[in-house]
Each structure stands twice: as structure tokens, then as C-alpha cells.
Amino acid sequence: MLHVSNLSVARGGMTLLSGVDFALNAGQILVLRGANGLGKTSLLRCIAGLQNPVDGQITAPETVAYSGHADGLKGQMTVLENLAFWSSIYHGPSPEVALDAYELHALADRPAANLSAGQKRRLGLARMQVSGCALWVMDEPTVSLDADNVALFRAALDRHVQSGGAAVITTHIDLAIASAKLLDLTRFKARGLMGSTAFEEALE
């Protein structure tokens, strides 16, 4: 479903990771590990199509569901309205399933602005369900979630991969997902290699 080969990723004109290779099939979860500032987020943004890689190739489905550091919620809209909006943008399944998965029924008519940080995060994760996309690309999904809610997330993730989906997740805590493949990005760290060689050519 996702195939990444010889990928180089840059941020702010500096190549952070190079030679990244991995493949992900339907039904698999890939957990990317690595220190802060290593380039995890930049790698995910490349996979989601928000950023162009410096080098290498990504084969991914046409649309993927991406979740970043910000949840992209509108405070003036209720929980249900937020989900319904994203469902219509993706032409995805109805919000009911997502409300079930993250036990958001009681909050459905509450404006998103009145939610706690953990509740907002749950709503952000519930958005992945209404996207209907097979590949989930998630950046630190469990930030500000307590143990119970991490369990909800794990259950939702399990259901997603069992129905033929796949997910790429970055995290710096152990999610304890038994089925997940682990990939430490530290060994792809770019050493002394910079982007923008064009200027050196121009100087010749």
C-alpha cells in the first residue's frame, strides 16, 4: 500500500534523513521512532503529499488521511458538525461510527471550543475514521490522551487494519501495539549532507 524507497527528506533547506526505505502492506501498522528533530514530521508530511522529498520515491494511495500536531477543529462548530464536515469533504462514512469508536456521543452537540485537550484530540482522531481512507498517516496521535483513551485509539486502529487498512504512526512513547512493525529512523540520519547543491554548481 505504501512503498518508500531511497527517500531524502529536508526541512528548511537541510536534509535530515536520507536513504529511507520501507514498505507497508494492507493490514499492517508501522511505528516510526526517533529523537526529536530527527525529521519524523517532515517524513510524514512527504508521505501525505504536503511536502516534496529532496530525492527518492513514494508510492502511496491518491488520498491519505493525515493527522498532524494541530487537530484542525473549528471551535464554533459542534463535535458532530466538525465530523460531518470532514466526512463530506472526503465523501467518507457517516460520523456515527466515529462517535462510537471514541465514545463521543455524549459530547456530540457540544461546541468544540468547550472540549478539554484530551477530548479535542479524540475528536481529531475520530476525523480519521470519517475520511474513509485506507492509509492513515498520524503524527504523535496519542499526545494528551490518558491510558483509557489510548486504549480506545488502539482498538480503533486494530479495527482499521483488520478491515484492510494500514497506518504509519510516529511516536516517542511505547504504544504497546503487538502487531505493529517498529522502525527506528536514527540509522537514516543524514550526515553532513545538505540540500541545495545548485548554488555550488552556480559558483563553478
Binding site: G13, M14, G192, M194, S196, F199, E200, L203
Partner: peptide, 17 residues
């Protein structure tokens, strides 16, 4: 401008090392 871009690349490289 070309030199200044090259300078910035070198400075960034220095910060990385």
C-alpha cells in the same frame, strides 16, 4: 545573491555539525 545563498548553506552545515 548566489554567494549569500552559498554562505547560508555553509552556515547551516556548521550548525548541524
Amino acid at each position: 545573491e548566489v554567494r549569500s545563498r552559498r554562505l547560508k548553506v555553509l552556515q547551516a552545515r556548521e550548525r548541524m555539525e
